[in-house]
Amino acid sequence: MKLTMLRNLAIGLSAALTLGTAGTASAETLRVGMECTYAPFNYKTADGELAGYDVDVANGVAAIIGVELEFVCQEWDGMIPALLANKFDLIIASMSITEKRKEKIDFSGPYRFSTGQMLGPKSKEMDLFDDAGNPIPDNFNGLRVGLERATTYASWFEDVLPGADVVLYDGSEPLYLDLQNGRVDLIMTNPMKAHLKFLSKEDGAGFEFKGPVVDEEKYFGIGVGIGMRQGEDELKGRLNSALKELINSGELEGYAMKIFPFKLHKDEWGQ
């Protein structure tokens, strides 16, 4: 009695499994993870539609390699674990290609620059960088600096400016709020994003960039790429040639021009 039940169960299970795999194979769908709150790169418009540079890149690539996309919204600090746990297949979320991340996941070639810049109140004179554009570590001692958890900015600060009092946030919106509220003296984030979302708005009127753009390759990587699980070389090859096609056809420049008056990539990435 027990045995037949077990056998039935086993048959049922294997049937379900084969059905499952057959389903994904017939219409290739790739699930794409992104934050969905990282404007202007990936965010939801007032109508609830996903938009932004990352979303355009995802759709552009999907059209070239001929797959359907399904977008999954995922908080930043859980992005790589979620990819590894197979919650989605690709990360197209403005993730910089760094050596540390490469230990866990694989990346396509870059499709956008990756840089950081600090912001602080206009009213406060801060002598943070020397004339050559290098930070002066002593002048950061005791300064409260707001950063997003698990970002390239956080690892840069940890190594280069250990004297700063770093406060870690879960998203970029709270950074601007607490800068306005005076809970932090400085924040560091993506300058393109900060300009668009904060400095150009009424809330950001009393604030400005402090110091130059930082893009030390050791921390910030060569740029932003598409993340995938390791060992998917065939997929990686298809993604890379699709990205090159987007660069060479000028389409990628078009995505950037929708938001900024300049492009966000180097033409040599298309070679």
């Binding site: 600090d77 859980g78 790589i80 674990p81 590894l84 866990k104 958890r149 698990a150 870690l168």
Partner: peptide, 13 residues
């Protein structure tokens, strides 16, 4: 908070 930062760095939830 510390655990979340470690997870974010090590990707080992």
């Amino acid at each position: 908070g510390i655990a979340r930062t470690i997870v974010a760095d090590t990707y080992a939830p």
